[in-house]
Amino acid sequence: MVDKVKLAKQFIEAIPHARELGMALTEITEGSATITMPYDEKLIGDPKTKVIHGGAVSALMDTCCGAAVMSHPSAPGGTATIDLRIDYMRAATPGQSITTKATCHHITRNVAFVRAVATDEDTDRPVATASGAFTVEKRF
């Protein structure tokens, strides 16, 4: 299964938008992935507080959930998001990078179910959580 994990890593790192946001895949195991995104002023959503936009957190969550699906032993190929819900618990602290860990907790022939948590440097208080359903594609 090492190859599968390697393949998922290569796939994620080849995504143009993930590269644009500086996302780095730090850990990937069977059905679980961790991705970090550095703070960047271009991602600011609230000019008064310098807090990054929820949309950038969504992009990170979506990428990480996709990586978790592709790294699952029962996933034969790529994946696409069917739906994704994000709950925002608090504003991420400006200047800190955001780390998301996603877990594919159930998979069928057609659908993968994923949960994710995002934190900044204060890892005890989540910034956001996500849950979603993803397609299971036969190929990449």
């Binding site: 143009p16 949309g55 950038a56 992009a59 979506d62 990428t63 996709g66």
Partner: peptide, 24 residues
């Protein structure tokens, strides 16, 4: 723009970009 691409093989806009666009 090309930087919005999520799947370079299709190609398709990144799901996160779509979410961000809707949220904005």
């Amino acid at each position: 723009d090309d930087k919005l691409i999520g799947n370079p093989f299709l190609p398709a806009i990144h799901g996160g970009v779509t979410a961000a666009f809707l949220e904005v």
